[in-house]
Design a binder for these strands. Structure first.
Lengths: 232, 232
DNA sequence: CGAAATTATGTTGATTTTGTGAAAATCACT
DNA sequence: AGTGATTTTCACAAAATCAACATAATTTCG
């Protein structure tokens, strides 16, 4: 599958970098614009932009206006980044043809998940809806997890964390890394909170709980399979 | 692959030298700056700096400020050197677009590993993720070692030490050298500690343990293969 | 061979890191 | 505002690691 190109529009370069880094890591191409005009120029010059991520709050031309102008000529999927709370906006946005909202601050993981979901909906992307690994099965749209065929209940964070583990199975993950992708980008708190979630995950996962290995002095890792650990 | 250029910014010349020496040994080009202003001058004068290593604590302009100014114009990867403990800082830095943190004191080996990982992520560098040597296989991302296909558990230090041996297979390594790259730069303890770790490594490695040769009066060496040693 | 130097090994205590349960804070919904 | 669920923090227990040391074994070299 060729890499899909995403246009990211935000006046803050840090936010652009955040979004870009995460998208690139997830195999998308990214083009950026720092204001509405540049965004429109880029969008109409470049015929193969698969999706647009648009900050609402921008000086000069705001996100709504950019959205309106794009919609006058194109049905490309548009995701809006908004400040929490504003429900009024959502209404306005849906009338304008916005496909999805993401409230700031969001977790990078959620951003990517939403983008992939939309692209999947529009048949431009066929990533997996169902993840699985050593008896763990995850349905992302249904937000449901099965262990050896048995459905288990997980809270939101637990689900996100387990999904992240499965997406990165076999890779040693530092707490730092986990925080930076599963938690909102402005989360400032104790990395040990991860331990608590891991504890709950392990217990809810029953026998399969020990697929989540502790890497002492480093972090955690989801083992791809149970075997390969004979001695000790 | 041409040599990549790294800008090292720290007010302590001792630290700059430490970092420089290690990077040069690992085939990077290094330019140094002793304060924030010099760093910015150098950075904007020199168009092909591939990565910046930045100490947080500096007189006059601190690391955050330097980071901000660089980020206003560039997305070059930035690694911050911080005092242990300060988690608050990490949040701030993340918003500024810092790519990685390394807590002082660090081991030179870790510094190089992180730098290479980031450059790999940004596709500027294609070193190996998997090392191997005479039946020993090391997956750095998984933090996992196999001996003849069997996974073995190693502690953090043991893993670092074995990786160092494999990276330098066939080369005689003095205890001094080993300490200076695998241990934190402020460790001034007994070099005999290495012996203890070598002992544990050898025993965990089973038969392959004797690939780690003692070089009497000198240090240790990892043999590239078991056979082919008729003389001696 | 034997003494001196060096390395191997087993043990131990201090330190660091992780596990765990419970309390506190936050959030979602009514 | 009130309730229950979720998330985070905290404190202490448990576990793992690490450095150091003492003693045994090995190598070197006179």
């Amino acid at each position: 599958m060729e890499r899909l190109k995403i246009l990211v529009v935000d006046d803050e370069s840090r936010m652009r970098k955040l979004v870009r880094d995460f998208l690139v890591k997830n195999n998308f191409d990214v083009v950026e614009a720092g204001d509405g005009e540049a965004a429109l120029d880029l969008f109409f010059a470049d015929k193969d932009i698969a999706l647009v991520v648009l900050d609402v709050m921008m000086p000069k031309m705001d996100g709504w206006q950019v959205c309106r102008e794009i919609r006058a000529y194109s049905r490309v999927p548009i995701i809006m980044l908004t400040a929490r709370t504003d429900e009024q906006d959502e209404l306005q946005g849906f009338q304008l043809g916005v496909d999805e909202y993401i409230a700031k601050p969001f977790s990078p993981k959620i951003l990517v998940a939403r983008i992939e979901a939309i692209l999947r909906r529009t048949n431009q992307y066929n990533g997996e809806e169902i993840l699985s690994c050593g008896g763990i099965k995850i349905d992302r749209t249904a937000h449901q997890v099965w262990i050896d065929g048995e459905a288990i209940d997980l809270s939101y964070k637990e689900f996100e964390l387990l999904t992240y583990f499965v997406e990165n199975k076999g890779i040693a993950l530092s707490r730092e890394k986990i925080l930076n992708s599963v938690w909102d980008y402005d989360y400032f708190g104790d990395a040990r909170t991860i331990d608590t979630h891991v504890k709950k995950l392990r217990s809810k996962m029953g026998e399969k709980g020990n697929l989540i290995k502790t890497i002492w002095g480093m972090g955690y890792k989801l083992e791809e399979s149970e075997d390969g650990k004979p001695e000790r």
